[in-house]
Design a protein around this nucleic acid. Structure first.
Lengths: 354, 354
DNA sequence: TACTGTTTTGTAATCGATTGCACCAAAATA
DNA sequence: TATTTTGGTGCAATCGATTACAAAACAGTA
């Protein structure tokens, strides 16, 4: 039924009794080809159902027209949204996007980097895993002269551009909002402080307290990971003691979710007795029975800008690689019921889901 | 700093004063090469940091060692879990996985198919979009002699293997469970019946009623899409009338979530007055304040099996393509509080999140 | 007509690895 | 010693497209 054999420019050249070089030039709209031949070639290509062999092209040019993206998990809304943004920008330029998951494991990360370099991708976008300390495997990308762009979670490597959000500002905004709602004893669930993002959120939190002359209470700073359980446990501990907090700023939406669940079990009124703000604006925050305030990281924009930085980088080869670009996006505070004692709630437009 | 130039087998051959053919054979452990030469080549390859050029290999062999996966959305837990399963099986075989999102749009789907075929992937896995009716763009894959595997959402195309779950059985199990909990007036939220999966779930629902001698009441069958809002609206309508249902089986977890939210607003007690079962076992179902029962589709297994079917297919070229394989997996009913009037609740192990 | 200058097309090398065939040397056999 | 066998290598073509350079073909001019 279907023709197994692939049509090449040689098939076209034979049929027309011209050389393959001419065919190639005609197909590429090379101005040195006469209009007559070009049309003839084009028509014949169509007839024979010719498709350019990207592999041959890639071998010749050294460009594969595909890029790799390495993220911890693809089923986290934040990351999949960043990928959406990258795709949106790069697909029109003919790029294929190869997506890899590190599962927060530096070894997987290193393996994926090797595989991508081996595939000769034209660039790599990555958000480093939580267990990545040492960066030798990442530097391999640079040794290979492959463009690298960090997004959200980065490492400080000279010459590597990055697109992040201003986590300090996010932490500051969330905290200030709680203060404005009347909070005076704000607990903070901070993530692993070895990661820049959590450190910055924590610093933003501290600065906001300072700026509003609220003393810092170390007992209210709890180190949690990003699990629901961690948030629930933290609340359980805090409420077991005296001097309970009157607000919580969690650097993770999931820990905040756990906190809210535990608070409701304890019959604590939200937001009247305790206001809660999370971080990331995961979709579920909007659909909770008690919708949760959170910091939006504008992930789609982040992906789009990362893609733009990449395109700029490959188009400006004259510039030395060591001139990196660091884009820092502004986070947005989304106020919902969990922290809002007034009546004016923001509307939540429908989202398509299955 | 880093050497820009890529090391080829010719560099090795020059250094050792032997032919590139010998180098190639040595690297591939061809038995016709003497042990001495092989070791010498291996050592030199290591020293020069030789990396095989996959493009050249791909051009020569016609195999790119990458496969494409087309899903509606990657940030839906079901699909990302299937992808996890595919990766888990295929990565050890040296495959790269290229992931594409159709966003439920047949046109995107067609574009991605073209791009993947153009990249000459060794196979395509897909779950068709809801708006795909006509299959000419899918048949292009077959005309190109590229292996194609459907998972979850398939089309009936001769010669194409598929891995799905037994949606009929899932619908039946959910319904029977509600009946066993004492329900007699069960409402069903069914999706677009043009899609096999929803039709089958619906049929399973109907059959379970029949088998238990419960009359079918068309007023209780509501056509919803998979949005939270749709579920809430459906409940609002049902509760506006008399003869309200005493249970709901939704073919979508999201619609079920909306239903539960609306029921709680109406102060309806769950599961005492109304039991609810969803479909897909999305992670959030476990973490709701009132955890929701659902049908698990074992997506990781689905991905793994799809990958195995693919591997079998490319290894058995002697068999005619028209012998397709159709794997149907058994769904699992996960009973949680939303439908369980007894006390024995299942434990919910922690899940890693951010 | 002869010559110069443009267009247009062809030749052949190139990207890097693989592989059928031919060939040479050393070892085994007669 | 002559001859066959065998193990190990090299030559050259191949995968498909691109492109520097060379060579036609053509038009224009004296």
């Amino acid at each position: 039924m279907a023709k197994n054999e692939k049509v090449t420019i040689y098939d076209i050249s034979k049929k027309l009794n011209i050389s393959a070089a001419t065919v190639s030039r005609a197909l590429n709209n090379n101005p040195k080809i006469s209009e007559k031949t070009r049309e003839l070639v084009m028509k014949t290509a169509q007839e024979l159902n010719y498709k350019q062999n990207r592999l041959a092209l890639a071998l010749k040019s050294g460009k594969t027209n595909s890029i790799g993206v390495i993220v911890p998990y693809i089923n986290r809304n934040f990351f999949s949204a960043v990928i959406d943004g990258i795709e949106k920008q790069l697909t029109p330029h003919g790029y294929n996007v190869i997506i890899c998951q590190s599962h927060e494991d530096a070894i997987n990360e290193a393996n994926h980097i090797n595989a991508l370099l081996n595939t000769q991708v034209d660039g790599i976008f990555m958000s480093v895993s939580k267990t990545t300390h040492d960066t030798v495997h990442i530097e391999k990308i640079l040794e290979n002269n492959t463009p690298l762009i960090f997004f959200d979670r980065k490492k400080d490597i000279p010459g590597v551009s990055s697109v992040t959000i201003d986590d300090f500002r996010g932490g500051y905004m969330a905290t200030e909002h709680l203060i404005q709602q009347g909070a005076q004893r704000i607990a903070h669930f901070c993530g692993d402080l070895n990661l820049e993002i959590y450190k910055n959120r924590n610093n933003g939190f501290l600065r906001a307290l300072e700026d509003h002359n609220i003393p810092i209470n170390k007992n209210l700073i709890i180190h949690t990971n990003s699990r629901i359980e961690a948030g629930a446990e933290a609340v359980a501990k805090l409420w077991a003691k005296k001097n309970r907090p009157d607000a919580i700023f969690s650097s993770s939406d999931y820990a905040a979710l756990g906190a809210i669940q535990e608070l409701r079990k304890l019959k604590v009124k939200i937001p009247e007795e305790v206001g809660v703000v999370g971080f990331s604006n995961e979709p579920f925050t909007k659909y909770m029975e008690l919708p949760m305030s959170s910091i939006d990281q504008t992930p789609v924009t982040m992906g789009e800008i990362a893609a733009q930085v990449f395109l700029e980088q490959i188009n400006n080869k004259q510039h030395v690689l060591s001139v990196e670009k660091r884009v820092v996006l502004a986070p947005e505070l989304v106020i919902r019921k969990s922290s809002n004692k007034t009546k004016s709630l923001k509307g939540t437009p429908p989202v398509s889901t299955e």
